[in-house]
Simulated assay, not measured.
Amino acid sequence: MNISFPEGPVEYDTQEFALTFVALADSVPVDCAITAEALEDRFGAKSLREPDLRLAFHRNRAAIEAAAARLIEETDGKPVTLHSGYLRFYGTSRH
Rank of each mutant, 00 (worst) to 15 (best):
T92H: 14
F5T: 02
R88E: 15
D13E: 07
I64Q: 00
L71F: 10
L19E: 05
F43L: 04
L48F: 11
H95I: 09
I72A: 03
K78P: 00
R94C: 07
T92A: 14
R59E: 13
Q15C: 08
S27F: 09
D41R: 11
V30N: 04
I3K: 00
E50I: 13
A56S: 14
G8R: 01
L19G: 03
C32E: 02
R61H: 06
A25H: 13
P29C: 08
G8C: 00
Y90P: 02
F57K: 06
V80N: 03
E73I: 09
H58M: 12
R42H: 03
G8A: 03
A45P: 05
F5Y: 10
E16A: 15
L53Q: 04
P79V: 05
I3C: 01
E37M: 05
A67Q: 08
P51W: 04
M1C: 04
L87R: 05
E73G: 07
D26G: 06
D41Q: 12
N2I: 08
A25D: 10
E11W: 07
D13K: 05
A66S: 14
E40F: 07
A67V: 10
V22L: 07
I72V: 10
L19V: 11
A18C: 09
S27T: 14
H95W: 01
G44V: 03
V80R: 03
R70L: 13
A33W: 01
R94Q: 13
V10C: 08
V30I: 15
R49A: 14
L71M: 14
G85E: 12
G77F: 08
R94K: 12
F89G: 00
L55T: 14
A69T: 11
S84A: 15
A56K: 02
L53K: 04
E50H: 10
H83N: 08
P9Y: 03
Y86I: 12
T75M: 07
N60Q: 04
Q15E: 14
K46M: 09
G44Q: 11
T35S: 12
T92V: 15
T14R: 11
R49I: 03
A23H: 07
F17R: 11
